[in-house]
């Protein structure tokens, strides 16, 4: 499968989707001017990946900020991962948040409540 590698900017996140090397990660800031257009290739990629996923998919979210429009598309990504999980594959979501960022931690908890996928919260310290 082709690799998606997007270098982040101050308003779009970094994205790595590389099935061969088991790398699935979205990190940084997300407030793109056109959220639907930004996330469309990512969702399309996941659709194709779901047809023949790896035995285990560990998907890392390491966002420092996302706006509400992005929050909806992040849920769409999680729902795709839920489908892969429900089809009998091993899936783990790792939600990374800065240790002092309660809002980002809470956002992870809310997503974990909504989707039925193994979900792990990981705090990290900055610097």
């Amino acid at each position: 499968m082709e690799v998606i590698k997007i270098v982040g900017t101050d308003d779009t996140p970094s994205v790595i989707l590389d099935a061969q090397n088991d790398m699935f990660e979205i990190s940084g800031r997300s407030l793109p001017e056109d959220v639907a257009a930004f996330y469309e290739p990512i969702l399309d990629w996941l659709d194709r990946y779901s047809e023949k996923p790896n035995e285990k998919t560990v998907f890392n979210f390491k966002l420092v900020y996302f706006n509400t429009a992005s929050s909806k598309l992040l849920l769409d990504i999680l729902l795709k991962l839920e489908e892969i999980y429900e089809a009998g594959n091993d899936v783990l979501i790792r939600w990374h948040y800065p240790e002092d960022d309660e809002d980002m931690q809470e956002a992870g908890e809310e997503y974990a409540d909504i989707v039925e996928v193994p979900f792990e919260q990981v705090s990290y310290s900055i610097d």
């Binding site: 959220v35 429009a69 929050s71 809310e110």
Partner: peptide
């Protein structure tokens, strides 16, 4: 949680979640 599940991104690119957030 309820709105994010039901909601869709509008043609204008909003998720209808801003005020709640």
């Amino acid at each position: 949680k309820q709105r994010i599940k039901e909601g869709r991104i509008s043609a204008k690119g909003g998720a209808g979640l801003g005020f709640i957030d």
